[in-house]
């Protein structure tokens, strides 16, 4: 009976994952390997293709009133701009997508049984500290050693192009590629990922939590479910559960470095304005 409950939990979280995250690992891998009936992604490999590729970027539309304000505040510009301006504009688009992704992760977190019964302050803390870790994990299936899918899989941006940007833009993605290439070797599928994301969100050691016990209890149940899931789904992969959990240590360092890069950008790039939701998250984070 206990393992039936754990399987039901795995099924529930997988269904939530499919509901809230539009680009699954299965779909991303199909796009990356060319095994999809959809057209191939547009490839961005230099500044020219970045400008051309902007029409493919299917970001959430900015309301006209705010677009005017952002044009003056953030230096939103038109085709034919300098490389610096294109880089800044691309960064702003990444921020919009990241903010939308935070909303998706929040909806997923709310679907974890017991999460909404936690103290509201603790729900905020768990999301504040967990959401960038979740986003980095969710980026991994979109990446291979040569580049990454962006814009819901419509665009493939090469790793070499990202490395060619000026500092610190060029430094921001390389650690995620290094992590993702190793993480992808574990060959977790979407149903495994759903449980792992819930484990990350339910971390009882986040700073400032008021009531740790119920969070740890919830996490323990999801951990049992993940352990069972990995044993059943990957019977030949020895110690996979332990290997997956070890990745959580790498994630904390990645987030800390990422926040450092954003703070550096804020200081050095006068044209950068940070999305208010992302500001909330990284303020006093690490």
């Amino acid at each position: 009976p206990e393992s039936a409950d754990l399987r039901a939990l795995a099924k529930h979280l997988y269904e939530s994952y499919l509901k809230y995250f539009p680009l699954t690992k299965a779909k991303a891998r199909a796009i990356l390997s060319g095994k999809t009936s959809d057209s191939s992604p547009f490839v961005i490999h230099d500044m020219r293709s970045l400008s051309e590729g902007e029409q493919f970027i299917n970001c959430r539309q900015i309301p006209p009133s705010l677009a005017n304000q952002q044009q003056s505040d953030c230096g939103l510009l038109h085709p034919g701009d300098s490389a610096e301006e294109v880089e800044v504009r691309f960064f702003q688009r990444c921020q919009s997508r990241s903010a939308e992704a935070v909303r998706e992760v929040t909806e997923f977190a709310k679907s974890i049984p017991g999460f909404m019964e936690l103290d509201l302050n603790d729900q905020v803390t768990l999301l504040k500290y967990g959401v960038i870790e979740v986003l980095i994990i969710m980026m991994a299936p979109l990446m291979n050693k040569d580049g990454t899918l962006i814009a819901y899989g419509q665009i493939f941006m090469t790793r070499e192009f990202l490395k060619s940007l000026r500092k610190p833009f060029c430094q921001m993605m390389e650690p995620k590629f290094e992590f993702s290439v190793k993480f992808n070797m574990l060959e977790m599928d979407d149903s495994d990922m759903a449980l792992f994301l819930a484990v990350i969100i339910l971390s009882g050691d986040r700073p400032g939590l008021l009531n740790v016990k119920p969070i740890e209890d919830l996490q323990e149940t999801v951990l049992h479910s993940l352990e069972l899931q990995l044993k059943m789904n990957h019977p030949d992969s020895l110690q996979l559960f332990a290997k997956v959990l070890q990745k959580m240590t790498d994630l904390r360092q990645l987030v800390s470095d990422h926040v450092h890069f954003i703070q550096l950008l804020k200081k050095t790039e006068v044209d950068i304005c940070l999305h208010p939701l992302l500001q909330e998250i990284i303020r006093d984070l690490y």
Binding site: A99, T106, K110, V124, K128, L277, E280
Partner: peptide
């Protein structure tokens, strides 16, 4: 904490909150 994280707080309370504020 809720005061310093108004958008996150709103997202937790209401799934239709737009993030492009």
């Amino acid at each position: 904490l809720k005061e310093k994280h108004k958008i996150l707080h709103r997202l937790l309370q209401n799934s239709t909150t737009p993030v492009d504020l």
